[in-house]
Structure formats: structure tokens, C-alpha cells
Design a protein around this nucleic acid. Structure first.
Lengths: 91, 91
DNA sequence: TATATAATTAGACAAATATCTAAATATGGC
DNA sequence: GCCATATTTAGATATTTGTCTAATTATATA
């Protein structure tokens, strides 16, 4: 839960996830969408990977990233629980 | 979305939300649950309030905090969207 | 009105974070 | 094998963040 929210805290990383929702992308394709150097994007991708929000596979000299949703499912549970129990106790 | 994830990023703040899920609490009650000074807790509460995750009302010299779930509902949408669209495109 | 208690605000500071440039490490094609 | 391209790693740096202590503000009560 900690790595997840750490990853989601940054707008660039959230944007990357939204891009990967549409289709798998290489580092270069992602990098092109931002006014930021490739090393910086690489840093963000690494952080997302550590949070298990994305996975990477190598295709020749390219690295393709995919969205992984398992951890998002878990976060959903955490948030739903917060909302749900509250609704039961409303004043 | 930015203030929300900023607020959720910190474990102390997430814990506070979990506590407020059970019942409304004063700053002192919250503070007692952590090995941390009251000013620090006050700082976290302020951040949560800015993210509209909690609201505060004054009862004499006490301030009571409540969980607010509207913003959480929105976050749910964002996350669900990420998961949903992905499922449609699975390889 | 003076004193105690609850909470916030201010200011300082160490640690974490996001960014950059430069260098290193693949991989592919000539 | 050499050069170009894709990506990552290393190192530097400015900004943000979480925490503390000290001071302030607000309320209650003796």
C-alpha cells in the first residue's frame, strides 16, 4: 500500500499509467509525451515497476512497458472499505 | 486528484483515516495513538483537510475531525477506469 | 482575572524526491 | 568489429516533506 501510493503521488507517473491503459508503450514513446529527459522517465518507470503497477519486457533494444492492475485491485479494496464502513455510521 | 494522492501517500495519514472510519475523534485522541508530537499530527490533519478527506468542527476547546468520503469516491472512479479499460484490451 | 488545557502556527532541519547531465550498457545493422 | 540508437545507472542539486521545539491562540474553570 505504501509503494502504491508513493507511485501514484506523482502526476507524471499517473499520466504514464493512463497512457499504458490504452496500449503497451516503449520507453521512447512514453518519453516523447513529456517535456522531460529520458533518464527522468526511466526513473519514474522504475518506481512504477517497484510498485508493481507496470511490467517491462525487452524487445531487442527496446523495452516495452505494460500496465499491471493487480495492485490497483487491492487499493480499491482499501478505499472501498474506508467509504463503506463510514456510510454505515453516518450521523 | 493531486492533493488526494499527496494526502494518501503518508502512512500516518492513512492510519488517521482508518481511525476516523470508526468514529469522529479529537486531535488529542488521534495524537495519543501515535508516537509523534501534537504539532506533527496537526500538520497531517491540515493536509488531510486540504485534500478534503476530513472535516473539522470545534467543540469548545476541542476540535473534532470527521472522515469525508466524497473525494474518495472520485478516486475510486479514476482507479476503476484504469482497471476497466485495461481488462478490455488484455492480450 | 489568572491559570490550565487543547490546538495551531512559526521556524529550523534532516531526509526524501524529482530533475538534470554525463557515462555506461545493451542491441542492431553496416 | 564499429557506429548508431534505446535504455539505464551514477552523481549532483534544488525542492518538498515530515518532524521537532518554542511560541501563540482560544477556551474553560477556579
Amino acid at each position: 500500500m505504501n509503494l502504491l501510493f508513493k507511485a501514484l503521488r506523482d502526476p507524471t507517473r499517473r499520466r504514464i499509467l493512463e497512457m499504458l491503459k490504452e496500449r503497451d508503450l516503449t520507453v521512447g514513446e512514453i518519453s516523447d509525451a513529456f517535456a522531460m529527459t529520458t533518464p527522468s522517465i526511466s526513473y519514474h518507470l522504475d518506481l512504477l515497476k517497484h510498485a508493481q503497477l507496470v511490467s517491462a519486457r525487452k524487445n531487442g533494444q527496446f523495452v516495452t512497458y505494460s500496465l499491471e492492475t493487480t495492485v490497483l485491485d487491492e487499493s480499491l479494496g482499501w478505499i472501498l472499505d474506508l467509504i463503506k464502513k463510514r456510510k454505515g455510521k453516518r450521523k
